[in-house]
Nucleic acid binder design. Structure first.
Lengths: 219, 219
DNA sequence: TGAAACAAAATCGGATCCAATATTCTTTAT
DNA sequence: ATAAAGAATATTGGATCCGATTTTGTTTCA
C-alpha cells in the first residue's frame, strides 16, 4: 500500500477533495462526463469512501452534480449562472471593500503594494493569476467578514472553472487589471472610499465584459 | 422507455442530513456537544457511513464543525456572525426583490396576497413561521436567481437555528412582520419599486434589531 | 493524597465486502 | 436485419470490519 504522504492534520477525504477540485478547475474533466469513484480511488491509492465524501462536498460547492446510482458529473455553466455570479460579486465585493477600508492598517497596505508590484513584474501567467488572487484575498481578509469572504470564494471557484477552461486572460487584460488594483489601492491610501468603491465596481464590470466577450453570449 | 422526468429518489445520506438538520434547527443538540455517529446510526437504523456523509454536508453548510478523530459539534454562533448574516441579507434580499419585481406576474401577486391573508389569520406559531418562509420564497423565486436564493437560504438556516433556539418571535413581532409584508406587496402592486425596496430594508433592519434585543448583545 | 503513567474503552476515518441499480452486451422473435 | 427482452457487466450506495487516535479509568509512586 503506497503511503499517501504526510497527512498529519488533514484527512484523506479532504486531500481527495483538494485534488479533485484542482482537476476540475484545470478543466481535467469534460462537462457531462462521469467521474468514476473507482478510478479516482485507484489513481490516488485510497478506497472509494473518501472519494465519495469528496464528491459529496464538491456537490455542495456546486462543482459537480451527483445522480443516484449514476455518478458525479461536472455540470455545464449556463450564461445565466455566469451573469448571476458577476451580479453577486458586484454586491459582495463592494461590501467587503468598504469594511476592509474601515479596518485597514499600514502594514496591510504595504503588503498590498508589494503584491501589486510583483504582479506587474510577473511574466508567467500562472504566477500572475496567483498574485491576483492574493491581492483580493489580502484586501478582503482585512474586512474581517469571514462568512462573506467564504461565500465570495465559492462564487469565484465556480467562475474560475469557466475562466480557466476558456483560457481567456490576455496580457492586455492583465495590465488593465493591475492598473485597476493600483487605482483602488491609491484611493485607499488617499482615504477616498467612494473612489475606491467606484474603481472596484469598474473592475468587476470589466471582468464581466471580458467573460461575456470571450464566451460569446447573446443573453 | 418511461419518461425520465422522474423525481430524484432520495438517498439514505440525504435522509439523515434532513433529520439532523431538523434536529439542529430545533435546538436538539446543545452547542459544543459532540454528535456521536454511532448513536445517530442506531437511532435511525442505518450504518455510520451515511451519517458521516450527512455530517460532512452539514459542515459544508456551517451547521456543525468536525474535528478529526473527535467528532462533530454544533458551533456557537458569535454576535459577529449574526451581524454579518443580517448585513448579507441586507445585500442579497433587495437584489432579489428588485429582480423579482422585474419579472413578477399577476398570478404570483395573487399567490402572495393569499399567503399574507392566511398569515394574518394564522393562530399557530409554527403555521405562521411556515407562511412567513413561504412568502419570501414565493416572492424571491420570481426573481429567477437560483444561486442567490440558494446563498440566502443557507444564511437563513444559520440564523434560524439561533432564532428557534431563542424562541424570540412574539405576537407583536408577527403582526409587525405581516404589516411589512403587506406594505412591500402594496408597493409592488403600485409599481413603486423604490418604496418596496425601502420597506424590505426596514423589514430586515427590524429583524436584526429583534435578534439583538432578544439575544442581548453587547459585543 | 494527588498527580503522573499506564491500560481500557470509546470513537473516528478508512478499507473491504455486499446489495441495489444502471448500463452494456447477447439472444431471440418477427 | 432490427428491435425488444433478458443476461452479464459495471458502478454506485450502504453495511461490516479494522487500524488509529482520543478519551476515560485505573494503578502506581512521590
Amino acid at each position: 500500500m503506497p503511503p499517501t504522504g504526510k497527512l498529519a492534520r488533514s484527512t484523506t477525504a479532504l486531500d481527495v477533495t483538494r485534488v479533485l477540485k484542482e482537476r476540475i478547475l484545470a478543466g481535467h474533466y469534460a462537462e457531462d462526463q462521469f467521474i468514476r469513484q473507482d478510478l479516482i480511488a485507484q489513481e490516488l491509492g485510497v478506497s472509494r469512501i473518501p472519494v465519495r465524501e469528496a464528491l459529496a462536498l464538491l456537490e455542495a460547492e456546486g462543482l459537480v452534480i451527483r445522480e443516484k446510482f449514476r455518478g458525479a458529473v461536472v455540470p455545464r455553466l449556463s450564461a445565466a449562472e455566469i451573469e448571476e455570479i458577476y451580479a453577486l460579486r458586484g454586491l459582495l465585493e463592494p461590501y467587503l471593500l468598504e469594511e476592509a477600508i474601515a479596518r485597514i492598517t499600514p502594514e496591510i497596505i504595504d503588503t498590498l503594494d508589494d503584491i501589486v508590484e510583483r504582479s506587474r513584474r510577473a511574466s508567467d501567467k500562472t504566477e500572475w493569476a496567483g498574485l491576483n488572487v492574493e491581492f483580493h484575498r489580502t484586501l478582503y481578509e482585512a474586512a474581517d467578514r469571514p462568512l462573506t469572504l467564504q461565500m465570495l470564494d465559492k462564487l469565484l471557484v465556480r467562475a474560475d472553472r469557466y475562466l480557466k477552461m476558456q483560457r481567456f486572460m490576455s496580457p492586455q487584460t492583465q495590465q488593465e487589471s493591475d492598473a485597476e488594483h493600483m487605482r483602488i489601492l491609491d484611493c485607499i491610501k488617499a482615504g477616498d472610499k467612494d473612489g475606491a468603491l467606484e474603481s472596484l465596481r469598474q473592475h468587476i464590470r470589466w471582468n464581466a465584459v471580458d467573460v461575456r466577450r470571450t464566451v460569446g453570449f447573446d443573453s
